[in-house]
Design a protein around this nucleic acid. Sequence first.
DNA 1: CCAATTAAAGAAAATTTATCTACATGGACA
DNA 2: TGTCCATGTAGATAAATTTTCTTTAATTGG
Lengths: 154, 154
Amino acid sequence: MDSFDKKILFELQRDCSISLAQLSERVGLSQTPCWRRIQQLEKQGVIRKRVALLDTEAVNLGLTVFVHLKTNQHNPGWLTSVTDFAEHAPEITEFYRMSGETDYLLKVLVPDMKAYDNFYKRLISQAGFSDVSSSFAMEQMKYSTEVPLDYIHK
Amino acid sequence: MDSFDKKILFELQRDCSISLAQLSERVGLSQTPCWRRIQQLEKQGVIRKRVALLDTEAVNLGLTVFVHLKTNQHNPGWLTSVTDFAEHAPEITEFYRMSGETDYLLKVLVPDMKAYDNFYKRLISQAGFSDVSSSFAMEQMKYSTEVPLDYIHK
DNA sequence: CCAATTAAAGAAAATTTATCTACATGGACA
DNA sequence: TGTCCATGTAGATAAATTTTCTTTAATTGG
């Protein structure tokens, strides 16, 4: 994992639709070693997948909500039902077990308040929570799937 | 935006590295109309971009932190400095202006607590906050860039 | 209900791009 | 110096993208 690999990752994180010719030029390698490195990075699992990112407004998803969950039922069954729900609810794009005040954090994408209310009812009908607090995003100032490459070891 | 478009978006959200042949087969169209629809969706901006997603562990980013910010300085200069910082800090992958208790919410990716502490110092040196509360993710239960297509109008 | 028009789909060819191989070159290092 | 890597060049093949043209299906006006 050297400077060339980092450059490849940097470029592909921004745009993976470019041709090998363009990529290798930007990276400063010829096509063959560039291609070999991509294969390697995919085999190693550093590159997980290649996806298309959609405009959330264009698909009618104007409302982002962060849902802070607390529970008093710390048993396996409870967690399973919540995990299952999150797994199958496409509105939930992120789901974390947290330290501190909130036990679990959800990031939810819906069109509007009405749709969120509907989602909310489905959520609380699925499992018991001692507290559910919803924080609404007024404005998305930044959203990026690019992760920093500055911390890569070596 | 009909059923075919939705299928195309569904597939490309999961994997945009598949060939047009595979995609058109899954969608149930021949290659040409399928290709034309993709072009259209890109021109319309429904498809924003195509990117490679990396394994955060593999690039040494084991710690996800949600940072809740409060301020009492509601002036343009303050916001500009914070926005600038967020823009240029690769550790900040998401940044929202919120309703309710917290004024702004950050999602931050760093290797470990030490790196977060370093980031934290840089953050608070950049602008004044009346409160900064950091929530640490213990476990990522779900992370997806796929957004629900069920709410598309028409 | 039918003919005319339009829009989208399909087929096939042409062009570009990706994939893989073989071999030569040059630097790093014991 | 000789060995080991990784790169570069070249090229062959396969595959994917894009264009062109034809056909089908849907729509509208009379």
